[in-house]
Design a protein around this nucleic acid. Structure first.
Lengths: 129, 129
DNA sequence: TAAAGTGTATTATATGACTCATACACTTTT
DNA sequence: AAAAGTGTATGAGTCATATAATACACTTTA
């Protein structure tokens, strides 16, 4: 079951979008597999200290995107085929990277300097290994 | 004068934060110099098609951060010393890069693959040269 | 079967972001 | 001095986000 153990609530954007992003990134990394059960809306609400309606909004949008499947009464499940997974992967990778690259370019940072900085910070930041 | 010619209104976040970000990045890149005049609030409002109050909020926060200086009746001016410039530079560079690195790591992307992707996208995105 | 858990829906309230309209005092320009 | 431009302030209204309190039908579990 997707427990949202390592999910951390940020203050950058709407909570429901953070939840959607967390699920999508989990699918891309493989930590969230097809067919897996989602934690219930009420349980996640209690875990994060967030209103149930906010969780419902995130789950509802995930279902509209065809990423999870809900049957009234039972827990929601992840339901993505390989084509969807690859589409999500490309979308997130390109979008996040483009955002960063444009930021660096707007600040007049040279490509080599930017890549070196990223390499430095990569090490400082939790090295998943 | 800072004309906001190349400023583009995004739909990611609050407009007043986008304006603040634009000014800060301009200072970092050197395209916005110390002592330079800001475009007037009403003029920027008309240029962007955004309410004057939204512009005022951005300018007011920029003044609270000690980045611009306003005299009632005259145009606002940029007023930053070298220490502030360096502080803004470090803050923006580290924060933007950290955000990107963490995104890549959460998606299980290897460092080399991430850097290669960034290098690819760097070329596609408007090469300021 | 009965209880607990779950998805779903409704109404209400509060806050932040943005818009619209207007007003006043100050500076620059004519 | 007069006009135009500018910074600053106020009050009202809309929309998105998040909260709060219930309620009902369905599935799973004891």
């Amino acid at each position: 079951m997707i427990s949202f153990e390592d999910f951390i609530l940020e203050d950058n954007g709407p909570i429901y979008l953070q939840i959607i992003r967390y699920v999508k990134r989990g699918i891309v990394s493989g930590s969230i597999a097809n067919g897996e059960e989602m934690i219930s809306r009420r349980a996640l609400s209690a875990l994060l200290g967030v209103n149930p309606n906010t969780i419902q909004k995130a789950y509802h949008l995930l279902e509209e995107e065809g990423i999870i499947r809900s049957r009234s009464g039972a827990k929601s499940c992840v339901e993505v085929d390989e084509r969807q997974k690859e589409e999500i992967r490309r979308s997130l990778l390109v979008q996040d990277t483009l955002t960063w690259v444009q930021a660096m370019q707007q600040m007049g940072v040279e490509k080599e300097a930017a890549l070196r900085l990223a390499e430095d910070i990569w090490g400082d930041s939790g090295e998943k290994r």
